[in-house]
Write a protein that binds this DNA or RNA. Structure first.
Lengths: 369, 369
DNA sequence: CTGAAAGCGCTTACAG
DNA sequence: CTGAAAGCGCTTACAG
């Protein structure tokens, strides 16, 4: 067999070394080099070392693309995030990203920005990259069909944070219903009898589950949970502010609110303060997610820790299972939630003044120049 | 020539169609199919249509990996973000991501998390993926050398937001010095004479540039700008809170502060409120970046719009230029900044009560269930 | 305008 | 334990 490129197996001269160069320089075949690269135990230690020295000397860089072509499977995983600007999803993305690298995958990011068309477009274009799998938080309004036309030969896919009705794809997310119930029970335990639900879109399963949890707790306590106590809004600070303001103006003002998420809750605390009321004393507020800002809010937010980072990590692990042949119907995961009590519900430290940071102060760098 | 795989060029049977299948079904050679796929004008319209019909019928999916192998250049771009949990960098990432897709690239995400080792590791492992280029905000403490050992044959790279001393790589970022100067001049214009600088790490060029801008303005106005007026901290809410608290306790308390960034400024407004003072009246605050939260803060933050999204987009464009052979020494870009006046500096609407949102209220969804 | 051949840098059976 | 051959799915000159 004639090795194609010019006889000189020397490095330099621009052209990056290939296994053919390494093989020639080490005096072995390229099969052997390939085995060394993949750490096969078939290779004699002496041979391995010889080859490794040459690899080192040549500064050889493995061409994963070429390998993938032959193996017909890449190490790329599509990471589709519905709204990366939302700190909650950022945290999810960070969790997934971190886990993917640890598992030997490389994430291709796409921020679909809650846009179904964009999501479809990305999904279509990613097919050309021979993904090992996909992890996605579906854009608002995604139907099972939107996720079904992913690939020709199906790419293992897990959906996170938002269920998609009728989709057979495994779902990984927090237990929204139980979490919301815990939040509500916390307020009931503090003596509240009129508890509103603020924020979120009805069109998302997350919202439906969280409202269900709120209802569960209220029904169990024999308290009202009717439509007049639900104030939906965009899942943003501005949305929370607006919805809470509407709630405050309602007749028979509730004394406590369970919010769709932390961002909404932060907006709500703003609305309450602006109405001249004290959060935690006049109106108790509980959020959901426990994003980083929750502890820094004024007052610090009582909330439900959704274990977001862990959800991201779990999603990556579930995907790995899928790739290894696990049954999609059996690997879904619903994560535990945890109540985190801070001042905004009036149960934490110093609810009236809200001056105490709920977490240890950050490392003090000092006031030097 | 004998087409390899089994004679049947029919779809189905699992195995995805290749250009060989398409060629056989369309009665042309695979060269022609390849030309059609790349939209070559060489192909007769009639032939093109025939081939396209077959492609459609077979649900053929282009294998970009195989193409890249032959072309020795991929459409992947490494996107290394120093701290994705920081809303500022999230915005940068979103800007870059969006632009990359528009330019026909696909971003491989890596959150280096301010960790030099992790950055080095990622950089090394990405070499195997034959990237078309890299866009990165360097991790804190990156030296030119950390970025120099990227690839064997150099991959076009642009660094954003933080300069790296001595690196020949093109830099794209906002004009920190001019922006900080504008912020300071705004405060001087409001009559302040003792203006502190709060937050940030001395080890980052961004900090050095912003402090320089603060000094420029103070010197020009004949005002003090000595070390005792600088209160550094971690670039976080908690850091800003802490540094501002230290400042408030200092002798001859400043009446205004220029902050390293918005996150620090938000923490500072918290510290000021907790000290029983009114932001904008007792102490004026200006941030930097204009992240989404700035407008939602209480009070809304006067800040410097760094055009973050645009910086991200510009970085992608500069990278494209580099790939097309532009001279790295000539394509760097320093973006304009813009003062955004809101209540926190005492110059916006209703500085005493801070009740007026600085932006139009979000779409009201209403209070239905 | 279209086709036959070679090649991109690997991996995968298959021998030995 | 190692090597020779074929092949992954494309693109690229080169003919015609």
């Amino acid at each position: 067999m004639v090795e194609t490129r010019s006889g000189a197996p020397k490095a330099g001269a621009g052209r990056p070394a290939t296994i053919v160069d390494i093989a020639a320089a080490a005096g072995v075949s390229k099969s052997t080099v390939s085995l060394v690269l993949r750490g096969s135990p078939l290779v004699k230690a002496e041979t391995r070392e010889k080859v490794e020295r040459v690899i080192e000397r040549y500064g050889y860089v493995y061409n994963r693309g070429a390998a993938n072509l032959r193996k017909a499977t890449s190490s790329f995983v599509g990471l589709l995030i519905s709204d990366l600007m939302n700190p909650f999803f950022t945290e999810l993305a960070v969790g997934v990203e971190d886990a993917l690298y640890r598992l030997g995958f490389v994430p291709i990011l796409a921020n679909t920005n809650e846009d179904l068309e964009r999501q479809a477009h990305v999904l279509r274009s990613l097919r050309e990259h021979n993904l090992a799998g996909v992890i996605m938080s579906p854009a608002r309004g995604s139907r099972a069909w939107d996720l079904a036309n992913l690939p020709t030969r199906s790419v293992p896919t897990v959906i996170t944070m938002r269920r998609v009705e009728g989709s057979p794809l495994p779902y990984v997310g927090p237990d929204n219903r139980a979490g919301s119930r815990k939040a509500t029970e916390h307020l009931i335990g503090l003596g509240h009898r009129r508890i509103a639900y603020v924020g979120g879109y009805a069109s998302i399963t997350t919202q439906q589950e969280r409202i269900a949890g709120w209802r569960d707790a209220l029904h169990a306590a024999g308290l009202p949970a009717d439509h007049s106590l639900i104030f939906e809004s965009m899942p943003t600070r501005a949305g929370g502010l607006e919805a809470a303001a509407t709630m405050l103006a309602s007749s028979r003002r509730p004394t406590a609110i369970v919010c769709y998420n932390d961002v909404v809750a932060i907006g709500a605390t703003r609305a309450i303060a602006e109405a001249g009321l004290v959060v935690g004393r006049d109106v108790a507020v509980v959020g959901f997610d426990d994003i980083a800002e929750a502890a820094d809010n004024n007052p610090p937010l009582t909330t439900i820790d959704a274990g977001t980072r862990g959800i991201g990590q779990r999603a990556a692990e579930v995907l790995l299972g899928l790739i290894h042949g696990a049954d999609p119907a059996e690997v879904g995961h619903v994560g535990e939630t945890r109540l985190v009590v801070r001042a905004s519900s009036g149960a934490g430290p110093a609810p009236q003044t809200s001056n105490t940071p709920a977490q240890p102060a950050a490392l003090k760098i000092g006031a030097s120049a």
